[in-house]
Design a protein around this nucleic acid. Structure first.
Lengths: 193, 193
DNA sequence: TTTTTTGTTGATTGACGAGTCAATAAACTT
DNA sequence: AAGTTTATTGACTCGTCAATCAACAAAAAA
């Protein structure tokens, strides 16, 4: 039954299945067979398209970070003042697409993978750098010289909220997450209008 | 050459070796044999004392959290005002004993383990609860009703700084970590003396 | 229509690793 | 001295899993 042009569809299905499988298992110790089954194909085909388990993981990680970037960009599109743009970056960080159980859990696991795998490390670095640079850029006109320090704090807090959401029993609460970070922003902007 | 009373020594050696091995590997995918070798014994003996790899991990996790608790308590001992106690909790969180490469990496990995393992989950929960309760207690006289919210933010930020330290290339920088968190505290206490 | 390219899988290989066991030995008890 | 408890390990079992391969099928190209 080979329909041509299957490759991109299969790849996408595998990436999706990887995030789901890793997210559900809460661990990278999932088998290629599990992922492939979820994606509706044999493990041999998964290997055929990606070559190795490592590459499957990296593709999934890229997908997560790409989605994240898209959400932030989307949130930024409607904001024009520095403060609203700053809040938009934060809101984008906790957007529905990214801020869901399996995605958060998968993200955490890929974070761990970055300790071992140089490519994963690089990917995460790029994300962190871009986030901080975005934050700093909007913070500059708001808090001046302190922009650098505040951007670091904000970045750390966002990651912290993520990691805690991964451990929570109940479904991740977007508004709760936003409250925590926005409260910090409120304080920082206070008296510097 | 069996000297009696070896059990506690062997257990401690295994726990230490576990943290080192997991920390260095940056992953829980280490073998019992590796851990045992590092601790200077056969893998059979490790199984003899702990029963399973899972139990070895849990013991190591307990050790990390116990050390962490001790550091915070130590830092608190010399502080008496609410603010100095608050700063002490933070300083204790990044104390030399806990805030080192392998320990941070091991901690992150155990964090992931808590997604799968109920006991690990419980342990981490206890730590989080205690930290937040400590923070809230000192914050109450400082920021009143906002204590709850600030404690959450601080807790998240501390975890965030940890997770980022795990990914940094260079050795974890205690002062840098402290700066980030203390800056946040400065802001929160501003205007509420 | 033969050939090539693309898609697909069941079966197999080869490695690795958790946990068990039987055996050995030194201490301690009676 | 005989028996028991504690310490210790090499060798083995048994399962799992990533990766490969041979083979088959259908579309496209020749």
């Amino acid at each position: 039954m080979p329909k041509l042009g299957a490759e991109p569809i299969r790849r996408a299905a595998l990436v999706k299945a990887t995030i789901e499988t890793v997210g559900e298992a809460g661990s990278l110790e999932v088998t290629v067979a599990q992922i492939a089954r979820r994606a509706g194909m044999s493990s041999a085909l998964a290997h055929h398209y990606f070559g190795s388990k490592e590459q499957i993981f990296l593709a999934a990680m890229r997908a997560i970070l790409t989605l994240y970037g898209a959400e932030v960009r989307g949130a930024l599109a409607t904001a024009d003042t520095p403060e609203s743009r700053l809040r938009a970056i934060v809101a984008g960080s906790f957007a529905q697409g990214s801020f869901r159980r399996e995605t958060i859990s998968a993200w955490l696991n890929f974070y761990v993978l970055a300790q071992t795998n140089p490519q994963a490390h690089r990917l995460l670095r790029i994300y962190q750098r871009r986030l901080r640079s975005n934050l700093r850029h909007e913070l500059r006109p708001l808090v001046g010289a302190r922009a650098q320090a505040v951007a670091r704090g904000l970045g750390a807090m966002i990651d912290g909220v993520y990691i805690r959401a991964a451990l929570a029993d109940d479904a991740p609460d977007r508004d709760y997450a936003l409250d925590i970070v926005n409260e910090y922003i409120d304080r920082e902007l206070e008296g510097t209008p």
